[in-house]
Design a protein around this nucleic acid. Structure first.
Lengths: 141, 141
DNA sequence: TATTGTTATACTCTATAACTATA
DNA sequence: TATAGTTATAGAGTATAACAATA
């Protein structure tokens, strides 16, 4: 069935920590904390959500999301505007500067990932990436 | 270089959470918290360490390790005995009951992993597992 | 009445610094 | 003096509940 290996939890935990460690200096360059990056990355990957929707997209509690949004808005990386169709909602959108910072982070992270995967056999890497994507997609059922 | 996919941090985070969620009921059956399991799993994978070494093996701070060891020792899953060659050290060892509980968890987790990976192409799965192992091994250099 | 965004409170987890016993 | 284990204290992170505005 499987090669003899440690448990998935062990392996995934170690690898995620290694990846996060390598991302830290990239985020530091842009004065972003990990949650800040998760938030702007989510904003750069689809239509502008409400804060509630953004909480769901990022997995961050809506009450703790606010602090991050306050900071990012103050720095001019995003804006919050009332939804005309339901004024309880606030629509969150990346500014041009926010998009620029996001693009910079993404470039650095993509380069870091290439370096991390450089020594991996091309076929293994393809299987690794396809499996990762497949397992993180909710079961179709 | 790579298939078009979300960033590794995003994918690994999602998958790790999914795996942990599936492990929770297995650990619950044995009245273990995640850290308890990490600890007894580390104890079951090599020679009996000191508490300090165990902290390094598990990544848990040595001061917070103590609470877990207290509980696990009280339940008879492990024992702490002074090291005769240096009585400042306490050697941590799984008891027979501890080994039994560990074996039960491992069996449940292995079955859960098989279920999780059931629909993955065999070649992709092999590449996935080999890459995971390779990337979690510290660079040889 | 219900919901979004917000704030405040309490709780948990974590990090740091002391304390003891051994070396 | 230095280290392993332990305990206590302070700080950060998290969850819960309340509040104002809008529906």
């Amino acid at each position: 069935m499987s090669i003899d290996r440690p448990e998935l939890g062990f392996l995934l935990n170690r690898l995620l920590r290694a990846v996060m460690e390598r991302e830290q200096p990239i985020l530091d360059e842009h004065d972003l904390q990990m949650w800040d990056y998760v938030i702007i990355a989510a904003l750069g990957s689809g239509p502008s959500p409400t804060q509630n929707e953004l909480a769901g997209l990022t997995g961050r509690d809506k009450t703790r999301l606010i602090r991050n949004l306050d900071g990012l808005e103050e720095r001019g990386l995003l804006s919050r505007t009332p939804d005309p169709s339901d004024r309880r909602n606030r629509i969150v959108t990346l500014t041009a500067e926010g998009k620029r910072v996001l693009a910079g982070c993404r470039a650095g992270i993509r380069a870091m990932e290439e370096e991390l995967l450089a020594d991996v056999d091309a076929g293994d890497r393809a299987g690794f990436e396809r499996t990762l994507v497949a397992l993180t997609r909710p079961p179709s059922q």
